[in-house]
Each structure stands twice: as C-alpha cells, then as structure tokens.
Design a protein around this nucleic acid. Structure first.
Length: 500
RNA sequence: UCCGGCGUAGCUCAAUGGUAGAGCGGGUGGCUGUUAACCACUAGGUUGUAGGUUCGAAUCCUACCGCCGGAGCCA
C-alpha cells in the first residue's frame, strides 16, 4: 500500500492526496446511493463518503456499526458540507471489527448506565476532550515545578499510620500487619525537602470517607510541593503561580475542547495573579458583614427571577412539544424540558436554603471550620481563586505551625476555586520546633513512637518549611466546568463503584 | 451515619386503581450529499425484590435491595 497512513489531526496537510486512515465509527448514515461515515481516530473526526459505485467498500460499510473499527483509503478533499471542512472520498475499506450491538447510543443516557460502561464511554467526544485537558493540567503542573528547580520524589502509597483522622483510611493487609493506603505524602516529603530543598510528589491518594457527592472520590490524584526555608507568603505565591500556569496552558491549547464541553472560557481568562487574600478572621467578618447579606439578597432576587424565567422557558418548550410533529423532535424537546426542570429544582433548592445560609453566615462564630456553604458564599464574592489563611489552630492538623503573632491561628492556606467548585488547595507552614511539635502531638493524644523519624527532622538541622496539596480532579472539574468530578478521571473510584 | 428523590423494553422515558406504550438502538425493505437523516414493517416486558390491601396494582401500604443528590468530612 503506497499511501501514507495519517492521523485526522494532520489531514489538512494532505489535501488532494490519497491517504489511509484507521479508526472507529463515530456515526454512520447509509443509503442506496451514498454512505457517510464519521470516523474518529483519537486525534479528531472526519467525514468519509462512500458512493454506491465504489465496491466492495459500499457493501462493506453496511456491515459496520457505531464504534466498529476499520482502515480506509481515499482522497482527502475540502468540502463545505463536511464537518471540519475536509472529507475523504473513500476508495477502499477494510473492516477490522464490526462492533454490532454497541451499547452507548448518540443520545442522552443516565449517569449510572454510563459509569457501568465507562470503558466505552471514554470514547465519546466529551470524554476525550476532558481526558486531553486533564493531560495538559498534569503536564503543566509538572512543567511548573520542574522549571522552578523542584525534584520529584515519589512517596510511599502503603503507609503505617494516619497523618490525620484514622477513620478515613483504607486498610490493607501487609504481610499480616494492617497498614493504610496513603492519603498524603507530606510527612515523607518533609524529609525529602531537607535533602533536596524543593521537592514535590505526584500520585494517587486514598480517602475512605463515605462521601457521595459530586466533589468526592475515594481515589484521586494530588500534587504536593514541599519547600525548605519557605514562609507562608512563599507558599501563597507558589500556589498562585501554579494555578495561573495550569489555566494558561489549558486556554492556550484547548479552546476547541472547552467549546466541546460547553465551557465559557471568559471566567478562566480572568484568572491572573494576584488572587484575593483574606485571613480566616477576615473571612468570618466578611460572612457576618452587611455586604455579604446584600450579596446574598441580590443572589436570592436573581435566582427568583431565574426561576420565573425557567418556568416560562419550560412552558414555551411544552407548547413547542405540542406542535412538534416528528417523534424524535418530541423526544429531544422532552429531554430539554427535563434538563430545564433539573436546573429549576436546583435553583429552587438554592432559593429555599439561602435564608438559612444568610442566618448561618451572619451568626458565624470564630473558631468553627468553614463548611461548604460558607466556602461557596465567600468564593462567590470574587472572580478569581480565593486564598484564605490563618485558620484557628484547633481546627487544623498537628503539624501546622502557629502564627507567632497570634498563637490561636495556624500558618496555613486554603484556596477556593471560583464558581462554587470548592477547595482545590490546602497547605501550611510546618511546625519546625521539636518541643512545640511534641507538645502538639501530646495534645492530640498521639503515640510519638512511630513518628520518631519525623521528629528527627526537627532534631537535625530543622528549618522553616512548608507545602500544600492541589487536587487534580477538582481542578480539572473547575477548568472544564463539569457538574461532576467523576468525569475527570478515566476509571473513578467512589463509594459503591468498583466496576469497571 | 442522617435527610430527600428515583427504580417500567438494551437506552431515555410515558401510562396516577381498569387491555403496559413511544422514541432511540437491533432486524428487514425502500430512498436521499447526509449532519441525532427520512419512510414502512418487525422483534423486544416476571413494571427492582418479597409480602400486603383490592373484584382488579406499574400505580396504594410495609420491608428489603439498588441508584442519585445533599449534610457531615475533605482535595
């Protein structure tokens, strides 16, 4: 076969040439005189035209189904009627496998069905767009730290004990001993930071929390930098630069993918340093402030108007439904109505809950940890990620260093993604003084014996240091504008889901 | 663990106490430079499970199972 095999992404460089493509059937329409095969190969999609006089190709295409695999050869030519502007005039087809009975149709499906067929769902245009963006997010993260002179250090996944709450860990049998799947590499990374200065780890982490929400997974990926000699402003700047770099790389290379996901790029274009920074104490004041009350009242008014608008929209769709003649158009309208009703339910719930949120916010007591509702209220007041620092010490982990200017608070930071996507970064300056750390561990009732190696880090050349973790899936969900975190990873693991 | 919602054809959904249906997908035939093509025909069901009420249950009641969302907790 003298013709070059090319990928669809490269097709525009082969106009008016005869080329071979190999891939899968994305869509197929065939008839007495002509067949249209939308071929996808992982790099893109291309319409391939098979005319009835082109035998045996025309007969062969009749045996194909959605997601059937094939090789074909034909001439690449520009045509305005083809999606993408280029199509293949097919000369020969080799069906590799017909894919009869492919279960996922080109229509709406329920989430559970799609997750049960996740191994096939991955092929869809939407899922491949997310996968490509996730890849860029990860490579941008690695590039950012590599460019800054960080060294990657892989930390163990099998860990002897809990760094934080032990109830949230998965237990594994380790030669007869119970050990846990790591929920962070941090403690090990602190050791590495004293060896190499600037380090990061990047791997899967595990939480056995029985959370069934669209923000939670039992297995997710987290990047954790740890920096010797760093203070809190250093960490804020490091995290800020990281998020900017990631957003910039996605915007730079994935306009078409974002468009395919229906993601408005405008909120992402607004992501620039400096991010707004508040302390926990200021956040509490913001929550209690009349301005927040006014913002919430404005949101309430806006949502009430949106509820009215949606009701009208649904009524309009209903009347269209009455007039629609084609059955499949009725079906499509019916699905639009359902989607609108779902949005309506969400809005109505927001409207119903808001008075309670307003009361909670107005009465928020210093010392409580910020809950999801408070985070949402705070992040909605800014168009960029919000950096919140210096939480009450009591609400935070034992290894966090106290603020020397106010021992009631820790030198920590959380970063909330905009648009209600929640916490994407959590980190702190670590307690580097041996006596203070031992005292804090005693307060928590921790047995110091298994932590002797960790305490050694304070005995031998202890320095100020700190780090943070950034959750990949939440970041991808935010950047892609996804309703659900489960789409951000190829094979999600969460309560009740182990297949496929 | 708690609160709320939902389980009907392979899929998405109708049927609100009285003969279980439609679209998509599958199959057969026709037809068209098609864009979720179109037209005709066709196959496809223990209405999640178990019990109860009733002349009669997809529909009402009870329990269980499964799924979804939220709270708590977190990235």
């Amino acid at each position: 076969m003298p013709h070059p095999t090319v990928s669809i992404a490269d097709l525009s460089r082969h106009l008016d040439q005869t080329v071979s493509l190999q891939g899968w059937v994305e869509a197929l329409r065939s008839s007495g005189k002509v067949a249209f095969l939308l071929l996808r190969d992982g790099t893109g999609s291309c319409q391939c035209v098979i005319e009835a006089r082109t035998e045996p190709a025309f007969t062969a295409v009749a045996g194909l189904h959605q997601e059937g695999s094939l090789r074909l050869t034909g001439r690449a030519r520009p045509d305005d009627r083809a999606p993408g502007g280029v199509e293949i005039a097919v000369e020969t087809i080799e069906v590799v496998q017909s894919a009869e009975g492919y279960p996922i149709a080109r229509k709406a499906h329920g989430v559970d069905f799609l997750l049960q067929h996740r191994h096939l769902w991955l092929r869809s245009a939407r899922q491949t767009a997310i996968a490509r963006i996730r890849h860029t997010v990860i490579s941008a993260i690695r590039g950012y730290f590599d460019d800054l002179g960080f060294t990657l250090v892989d930390t163990p996944i099998l860990a002897p004990g809990a760094a934080e709450g032990a109830g949230t860990l998965f237990t594994v049998d380790y030669f007869g001993e119970p050990v846990y799947l790591a929920q962070t590499g941090q403690l090990y990374l602190e050791a590495a930071a004293q060896a190499l200065g600037k380090v990061y780890c990047f791997g899967p982490t595990f939480r056995a929390e029985k959370s069934k929400t669209r923000r939670h997974l039992a297995e997710f990926w987290m990047v954790e930098p740890e920096v010797a000699w760093a203070d809190l402003p250093d960490l804020e700047a490091l995290a800020e630069g990281l998020i900017c770099r990631v957003v910039e790389r996605v915007l730079g290379g994935h306009r078409a993918d974002l468009d395919r996901l229906g993601r408005d790029p405008a909120p992402l274009e607004a992501i620039r340093a400096p991010f707004p920074r508040v302390t926990y104490t200021e956040a509490v004041e913001i929550l209690r402030s009349p301005e927040t009350r006014a913002t919430l009242e404005a949101e309430q008014a806006r949502d009430l108007a949106a509820v009215e608008a949606l009701r009208k929209e649904i009524a309009g769709l209903d009347s269209q439904l009455g007039q629609a003649t084609k059955a499949w158009k009725q079906e499509k309208l019916g699905q639009e109505i359902q989607a609108a009703q779902e949005r309506l339910r969400e809005l109505e719930m927001a409207v119903e809950n808001r008075p309670g949120h307003m009361e909670d916010a107005a009465a928020f007591a210093w010392g409580r940890d910020l809950g999801g509702d408070e985070e949402t209220i705070l992040s909605r007041r800014f168009d960029r990620p919000l950096v919140i620092t210096r939480y009450p010490k009591a609400a935070k982990a034992f290894y966090m260093k106290s603020d020397p200017e106010n021992p009631r608070v820790a030198l920590n930071l959380d970063i909330l993604a905009p648009e209600g996507y929640g916490e994407i970064v959590g980190g702190s300056v670590r307690e580097d003084d041996l006596a203070a750390l031992e005292a804090r561990m005693a307060e928590e009732g921790m047995d110091p014996a298994p932590y002797q190696w960790y305490l050694d880090l304070r005995r031998y050349g202890s320095v100020p240091h700190g780090g943070f973790g950034l959750g990949v899936e939440r970041t991808v969900a935010w950047i892609c504008g996804l309703r659900h975190i489960r789409e951000t990873i190829a094979f999600p693991r969460f309560m009740g889901r182990l297949y496929p």
